[in-house]
Computed example of a mutant assay.
Amino acid sequence: MKITMVVVFYKQKPEESKTFQTLKQTLFLQKEHVKEIELILYDNSPKSQEFHPLDYEGMTISYIHDPRNLGIVSAYNHAWARAKENGSQWLLLFDHDTEVTFAYINEVVNLPEFSQDIAAVVPKISCENTMISPIYSHTLRPLQEKPPTPGIQEVPVMAINSGSLISMAFLNKVNGFNEEFSLDYLDHWLFFKIYEEGRKVWLLDVELEHELSVMDYSRISLQRYQSILDSEGKFYQNYKKDLFPSYRTQLFKRFLKQVLTVKNKKIALHTLKRLLSK
């Protein structure tokens, strides 16, 4: 079974990435499986990083430098095109800050033959002792509900991109990743599309740790927060339309909370502007 993997970087050497470091400690040791895997390191940094793929014997690794920094969607669509060329059945997505484990890699390289109904295979993802992915997508407050259990997910869920295996048959049907979402909410669109197309998600009984800076307002720039707001509004207004009224209400509650608890009041101002926009 062929798998194409893509890890997206920004202003970081591949060897400094938690994802790449833990891939070396897990996947790279699976000598009998790495021949069927192509790894793409996609670097959105302004300047190219020094990297030598030939240092890693037995692995097919390519380093792509794209100084345009068009977000993760350009990296994913490049990887999708490469996966079509090399006949991969799955495309595996990674951010730079996911801690890959032996248990997860063993699941990936020993995937059973799933039916065409399964468009994505995902692990449990935790951040700071909280399971953040996958989550049920019928509510705006999914972390307050009981998390999904391993196996096929009949009820729609949303998973973060990193660690997700996406079926190439599904990606080819929907013509790759939606360029409307260059960075934020691309995962929301992807899993919305999976269930809209009548497909389903399989949840593995393994857990990965992932750093998610957007959970902390003190660690997020105003520019990034604005990007999140823009993508969030677009998603609920144009795709998950049934939740749009609830989203507007939630946005107002978020604004009030930010006024009271967030030190940088410009965060609250950006939320208010989004709330007052159409």
Rank of each mutant, 00 (worst) to 15 (best):
Y63L: 06
F177S: 03
L222T: 06
Y225L: 11
A159K: 02
Q25G: 02
C127G: 08
L190A: 07
I37T: 04
P112I: 09
K2W: 03
L275N: 03
N106E: 15
E154K: 13
L275H: 07
G87C: 05
V34C: 05
G71V: 01
L251D: 06
Q258I: 04
Y10E: 04
P53V: 11
T261V: 09
T98D: 09
L272R: 07
L212Q: 15
H188G: 05
H188D: 12
G58S: 10
M215C: 08
P148L: 08
I40G: 00
R68I: 06
R219L: 13
M158P: 00
I105R: 05
L183Y: 12
I220G: 00
K234V: 03
L269I: 14
S164K: 01
K31P: 02
H96K: 08
I118M: 04
T249F: 14
Q223S: 11
P112W: 10
K266H: 14
C127E: 10
V7E: 08
T249L: 12
G71T: 02
L23H: 01
K234H: 11
N44D: 04
E154Y: 14
T22D: 05
L204I: 10
R248A: 06
R254M: 09
A81D: 11
L70Y: 07
R141E: 13
F192G: 01
L212W: 15
F252E: 15
D187E: 14
L212A: 13
I166G: 00
Q250S: 15
G151V: 11
L41H: 03
T60H: 15
H188C: 11
L275C: 07
